[in-house]
């Protein structure tokens, strides 16, 4: 099949960007979207042109590295899939496809389709953990966890930190990402001890990074490759309110 691509090209963080058109010729429906870009890049390099820079690593939907907005939708709109799990069988012969980077103030473009998501790391560094050092912990079965809580915590813990939620949000809010971490740890007895402190710290760090506010439109949930539920944002708001009401020193 043949496709036309309109790809965002930008030399570096400060240079202005623009769309460039490329032809993807004789690509196959069983190729993944990224393999199609590999083919286009091979052709560009054979013509001695600079390949399109884009991030990817595991190519099986778990590392959270790949980050393309395809036709306006982060990860391309396949339910529960990252862009590396998107295959060309979902496109039609002759389609024109627009490919852009994540767009958010807190995720500056590094080059072409590559963005800097270190803001997410800084949020976790502010308190997205259980404050336990190696050693001196009880036997694993000394901390029973109700199965339902463990399952719900796991639903939240699946977040791959890709940032699609931010890219989809009109306010570039990171609430779903933060909510997932707050819920994952807050639901488990091991994480409950510092629950209030954690939620306050994470929200403070999120605001400091320049992410926007949440107006609960649900676009984050719609594009999340791990289908993390909007309910976790409700939980985050509740946990945050409780922490603030308690007014405990953080």
């Amino acid at each position: 099949m043949n496709l036309t691509l309109k790809v965002w090209r930008q030399k570096n963080a400060t240079a202005p960007g623009r769309f460039e058109a490329y032809e993807a010729k004789d690509v196959l429906p069983e190729m993944s979207f990224l393999e199609m870009l590999d083919v286009v890049n091979e052709e560009l390099m054979e013509r001695d042109e600079e390949p399109i820079a884009f991030d990817s690593d595991c190519r099986e939907g778990i590392c959270g590295t790949c980050s393309l907005v395809i036709n306006g939708i982060p990860h391309g709109g396949r339910k529960g899939a990252t862009v590396c799990q998107l295959h060309l069988r979902h496109f039609k012969e002759g389609d024109t496809i627009t490919i852009e980077p994540w767009r958010a103030k807190a995720f500056p473009v590094v080059r072409d389709l590559v963005v800097d998501r270190s803001a997410f790391d800084r949020i976790i560094q502010a308190g997205g953990f259980v404050s336990v050092s190696t050693g001196g912990v009880p036997d694993a079965n000394a901390i029973p966890v109700p199965k339902a809580d463990a399952e719900l915590a796991m639903d939240a813990a699946q977040c791959i930190g890709c940032g699609a939620c931010v890219a989809a949000c009109k306010n570039a809010s990171a609430m779903l990402f933060v909510a997932a971490k707050v819920s994952h740890l807050g639901l488990l007895p091991q994480g409950k001890v510092e629950k209030d402190r954690r939620v306050a710290k994470l929200v403070e760090a999120m605001d400091a990074e320049g992410f926007g506010n949440c107006t609960v439109t649900g676009s984050c949930e719609a594009v999340c490759p791990k289908e993390i539920s909007l309910h976790f944002i409700a939980r985050l708001n509740r946990d945050y309110a409780v922490a603030m009401l308690k007014g405990r020193a953080v």
Partner: peptide, 8 residues
């Protein structure tokens, strides 16, 4: 160790 860290 992993359970104490909150691995679900």
């Amino acid at each position: 160790q992993c359970v104490a860290q909150g691995v679900p």
